[in-house]
Nucleic acid binder design. Sequence first.
DNA 1: GAAATGATCGTCT
DNA 2: GACGATCATTTCA
Length: 204
Amino acid sequence: MDLRQALEAPALEVAPMLLGAVLAHRSSDGTVAVRLTEVEAYEGEGQDPGSHAHRGRTRRNATMFGRPGLLYTYFTYGMHTCANLVCLPEGRAAAVLLRAGEVVAGAELASFRRGGVPATRLARGPANLASALGITLADDGADVLAGEAFSIDPDPEDAARIVAGPRVGVSGEGGSDAYPWRFRIAGEPTVSAYRPAVARVRSA
DNA sequence: GAAATGATCGTCT
DNA sequence: GACGATCATTTCA
């Protein structure tokens, strides 16, 4: 499979292909590799209200408009870093958020970085996955396909056991299809029930 | 076990 | 000045 070419497709098509892929990050501390078990597609301007690129290009999301195969990392909620893989040709924004994975190499280092949580939780959740891999804002714009620090290795077989689900509560009504699009590998303990994104509601 | 809530700061309006 | 592609902890059942 020519991954570089495959990444020119929209996020919706790229996301399922990334399931089961092993993403490795080499740092001075060591190497950690994660087998992706849950991802989510984010399209570009005007297509996905949940996308950072929905409102057009800004300083932060500039990487999303870059060439496919780049790593787009962002900082959110004052303390968390999340990682995406950019797709679509340069100039068009789209990315796949890496939501969860199973640590397949460097578990000891990952566990240290995560404060010794159980293996199934090492990389469960976008910010946790980034933390386990040692990904920071400094890695924004890194080339996963050609860089030295990162590498990714797709697994076509895992890509077959996919469960796709529209997010609960987005439409509430039959209308248009719901987004964003979330994909996961069936029966993965590392992906167990994830709380659907619901707007914070304060009890009166 | 499930649900609510605080933490914390860069980015955008 | 407000909010967010979240997480860990504290509560309540």
